[in-house]
């Protein structure tokens, strides 16, 4: 037990690591996570629309994309994009290593988010689309104005899971060999660990991750609740039902 607290809970080492974790690690983890999330949301939404096409040859490439990026370990995708692309002469971000990391994580997230949105879109009753088409709306306006807004609301909880996973997966970009200033939380913690042969800095890094993911989950949950209440303003008329939903 004494070994454990010496190796993992050394407050002096934590104190030493705190500055870099806070200023460099936290900042970069947030940039990488938010950037990848934004890519994943936009890419996932577009891809989900392709996956619900009635034509198989439209769906097929989207299925291949999703199977591929869900199937590969994220760390391998990061290596392929961050090291593979530049070595093939494709350097859209020059030497900004972390930007390749964002792109790689965004590509992975796109696959997961697409599946989440697809589930949401397909859960919307087909009468909703029919009613929109019956008044002369095109397939795409019906999707944009009627089906997608309803589908997205229903999948906020699983979307939260994806965001939380993404924040943690942002640690994987350390494999690209980040220079000082580019390091995210895990890499900062790891450097200190290697320096002192002590894991306490990584434990502190872990606390930072929790400090990001818990408020994030609560934020999305609150949005979820607000949207649900907006949908039925007659909350006071249904106390038992609403109570059950908000347990």
């Amino acid at each position: 037990m004494e070994d454990f607290s010496r190796l993992f809970l050394d407050l002096r080492i934590m104190g030493e690591a705190f500055g870099d974790l806070f200023r460099e690690g936290l900042r970069n983890t947030l940039i990488v996570s938010v950037g990848a999330m934004a890519l994943g949301l936009v890419g996932g939404l577009l891809l989900s629309l392709v996956t619900v096409s009635r034509r198989w040859w439209v769906r097929a490439p989207a299925r291949v994309y999703i199977d591929l990026f869900r199937g590969l370990p994220a760390i391998l995708t990061i290596v392929l994009v961050g090291i593979g692309l530049p070595s093939a002469g494709i350097r859209p971000f020059g030497r900004e290593t972390w930007a390749y990391g964002i792109l790689a994580l965004g590509l992975v997230s796109t696959a997961y988010v697409a599946e989440i949105f697809r589930a949401g879109i397909q859960s919307v009753d087909k009468g909703q689309m029919e009613a929109a088409r019956s008044v002369g709306m095109t397939y795409f306006s019906a999707m944009r104005l009627v089906v997608v807004p309803q589908g997205i609301r229903r999948v906020l909880p699983p979307l939260t899971n994806e965001f939380v996973a993404l924040v943690k997966d942002s640690s994987l970009i350390f494999v690209l060999g980040l220079s000082v200033g580019e390091r995210e939380l895990f890499r900062v913690g790891q450097n200190v660990t290697q320096q002192y042969g002590n894991y306490s800095s990584l434990v502190l890094a872990g606390l930072f991750y929790v400090a990001i993911t818990v408020p994030l989950a609560h934020l999305v949950n609150r949005m979820d609740r607000r949207l649900r209440e907006g949908k039925r303003l007659a909350v006071h008329e249904l106390p038992s039902v609403v109570g059950a939903v908000h347990l």
């Binding site: 009468g127 009613a131 929109a132 019956s134 008044v135 002369g136 309803q150």
Partner: peptide
């Protein structure tokens, strides 16, 4: 379709909009 109105057994109103928006959208 914009010249042919249709009413369904299950109403198929759009639940995420107000009643007025349902009618005004098309």
């Amino acid at each position: 379709r914009s010249r042919v109105g249709m009413v369904f057994q299950q109403f198929n109103l759009w639940p995420h909009m107000t009643v007025a928006r349902n009618v005004a959208l098309a």
